[in-house]
Design a protein around this nucleic acid. Sequence first.
DNA 1: AATATGTCTGTAATCGATTACATTAGTGAT
DNA 2: ATCACTAATGTAATCGATTACAGACATATT
Lengths: 341, 341
Amino acid sequence: MKKSVKIQDVAKVAGVSTATISRALSNPSVVSKATREAVLEAVKVTGYRVNRAARNLRTRKSNTILVLLPDIGNPFFSQILQGIQTVLSPRGFSMLIAETGQISAAGEHLIDYFDDGRADGMIVFDGGLDQEVARDLVEAPQRNQVVFACEWLNNADFPSVRSANRRGAVEAVKHLIELGHKKIAHIKGPEGNVLTDARFESYVKALEEHNIPIREEWIFAGDFDLNSGRDVARKIMKMDEKPTAIFCASDQIACALISEFSKNNVKVPDEMAVIGFDDIELAEHFVPALTTMRQDRLGLGRQAAEILLSRMMNDKGISDSDVIVMDVDLVVRESTAPPQN
Amino acid sequence: MKKSVKIQDVAKVAGVSTATISRALSNPSVVSKATREAVLEAVKVTGYRVNRAARNLRTRKSNTILVLLPDIGNPFFSQILQGIQTVLSPRGFSMLIAETGQISAAGEHLIDYFDDGRADGMIVFDGGLDQEVARDLVEAPQRNQVVFACEWLNNADFPSVRSANRRGAVEAVKHLIELGHKKIAHIKGPEGNVLTDARFESYVKALEEHNIPIREEWIFAGDFDLNSGRDVARKIMKMDEKPTAIFCASDQIACALISEFSKNNVKVPDEMAVIGFDDIELAEHFVPALTTMRQDRLGLGRQAAEILLSRMMNDKGISDSDVIVMDVDLVVRESTAPPQN
DNA sequence: AATATGTCTGTAATCGATTACATTAGTGAT
DNA sequence: ATCACTAATGTAATCGATTACAGACATATT
């Protein structure tokens, strides 16, 4: 049972003081070459590893970033996490993951992560934070160490990285219009979500721009998830006057929608054109392959991490680029086609 | 700029010593009711939060679990992470996430997480660790604080949680046989993976048990991912003698396989029956809905976390239940049917 | 009354690294 | 020879909580 090596032990082996060890490791340029090499050698010999808790205590830093998700189980986030990780890892930061619901369920507050030194910064993917939680964040001294990604807060201007939801939604609907559709339905995301609103409003805008009247009965509540797609498909099939095309707020909705249509012999894209949003991995391999707006999830994660780190370094409090909007791309596959008749 | 409250400040407000504050918070039963209430009140008034770094340093614990994934971007893990989180969070543990590749790329070692006090335990999802990394883990004094999940190491007996891969694969193939298939192909997972081997060997075993000869040309290399499904579909379509059914090592393979078949007018399930493994969320909503073996991903995550925590509490070094095998369920949907003719 | 027992609380050492400040030695200028 | 300055290193305080140990007090026992 070898006891853990501490900086004192290394100092003894290298024949220098602990201060020199510390300096040689964290700021090599200030010690002489000879010492530096001796220290490195001693570190190797002893197998020394800095004790993070001690370092964190002394420096008041954790080198850890909290990633706050509304729902860890949603596979939409996995690639985003990967993007974040590719930026954080080489820079020596660790990634802590938590879920909005779990934090409040545990009686904790979001800013506790700052207050108790668990995290130096956070990337928040939940635009639906409680009013109170949001206010705490705005008023926190660590205000600058927070970046929103994908979603954002309407009443606070944190830096944020997001996809071009409005342009994307407009383009998606336009794609349907250009194919000749006039009867275009929309399945919304969850109530109160900023993405839901942005995409829905753009749907309305695109229709208005082309003088297509809005039909309330073709606007459906949903929640980004599979089940809402299935449910809406059932509703639509019962309608007397059906739309000929549907713009879904997410690919998951679109897939489940198509699936339910297929089961009931409603042909996609011929009888019903369907376009999604996200371009999840499976979209390309769905049957029929899904036409959708691609979000660069890896890039979103990377950008969010980059911005956060650069803000944490500067700490100017001033920021030139508060909102980064990532491009989205229309990917035309097989689930959209001109209307039949 | 309010400076952070420390335990001293609370002590002053409550009119007791720091020791009492600490005790009242971490071991309430040892202080009198009156003091306890006074302390709680003082904590509320001051807005005190324990400094984790200080606590971690003193207690030599981090209350953090490292979750090591082979690939963060793989959505297969998201529900597992959620399962882990639901166990860890209420017990006051945080979840740190890292990727095998990133750690070595950063020149770090897995056991550094123990050595430098970043994690008290780890759940490893990668059965393909380097020999060296694996050996370090086996020899580490924290051997007991490691649990494998989904995958496992062949040459070391860490506790592990996994699905009944062998039984599941046998059942999957049997399902095809019972439908009347005799020409059954298999698309394997990545080379050298323990799951690949378990599922492949079971495929062979199931065929042998039913006296169906193994046809080498119907065994395909793959890698759990979408592209290998597409590629194998193309290969099969070019064959003179085609199988009538295919057992895929993952749902992703199966979906992409079916997708490619559909594009080329090979009818699933009529011309080709396909069964997957995993039951990813989309399986149910695929077209046709995918027949597959369900793995309880949420449960896997939960179990892994439970076992790890209980081992960390006991620390007996002895373990009655080393390997927990989670049930898998055959979910018959629409991608399998009897062979045509 | 003296002693034992138990309950509660306080004092101060401790965890291990970082860093402000002090010190030393070496170089070059005057 | 003295001074100014730089470069390299050492000494010791510090970060903030936990906890071993000791002490104070109240109650029970003999």
